[in-house]
Amino acid sequence: MSRDSIKMVAMLTMLINHIANVFLPAGQVWRAVGCAVPILVSAFVILYLYNGRRAARGRTFYKWFFYAFYPAHLLVLGLLRLAV
């Protein structure tokens, strides 16, 4: 997928999100759907760009980074909740 295609998908996502927020303000369901569209489009782009192979290098770093990041960010969120 070329950079122009990715830019077009990103602009389309922003447009759909804007339309959902401007023209459908009364329905909270439509607002939630409009906010979910960028996430869904980015997931489709990532899946489209996936070539079916695992990364050859850096696997160990990412594995341990996310093992440490998940509990650390929960701890920070918990501390913020206690502080507020």
Rank of each mutant, 00 (worst) to 15 (best):
F69C: 00
S2R: 13
L75E: 05
K63W: 14
G78E: 01
P25E: 07
R54D: 11
F61D: 03
I46A: 14
C35F: 14
I6C: 03
A72I: 03
R59M: 05
A10I: 11
Y62P: 02
R57A: 10
A10H: 05
N51Y: 04
L80I: 05
S2W: 03
A83P: 07
Y62D: 08
A20D: 06
V84P: 07
G52L: 06
R53C: 11
N17G: 10
V22S: 07
V29G: 10
G27D: 14
F65Y: 07
A20V: 06
A68C: 09
T60M: 08
N17C: 15
P71T: 10
L79E: 03
Y67W: 14
M1V: 12
L49I: 08
R59H: 01
I6L: 13
I46N: 06
V45L: 09
V45K: 03
I16L: 10
Y67S: 02
V37Y: 07
V45A: 09
L82C: 10
K63R: 13
Y50S: 02
A36W: 02
M14I: 11
L24Y: 15
L80P: 07
I6N: 08
H73F: 14
Y50G: 07
H73T: 05
V33H: 00
K63T: 12
M8I: 09
V37T: 11
S5E: 15
A26S: 15
L24A: 09
V29D: 05
N17Q: 15
R31F: 06
N21D: 11
R57Y: 12
P71V: 04
A43G: 14
F69L: 01
V29R: 06
G78V: 00
F65P: 00
V37N: 03
P38L: 03
G34Q: 03
L77P: 08
I39M: 14
Y48I: 02
L74F: 12
W30V: 04
R81L: 08
Y50V: 02
Y50M: 01
Y48H: 09
A56N: 12
W64S: 05
Q28D: 06
Y62I: 08
I6R: 12
I6H: 05
Q28C: 04
L75I: 13
N51F: 03
R31M: 13
G34M: 00
V33G: 00
M11A: 15
G58P: 02
L77I: 15
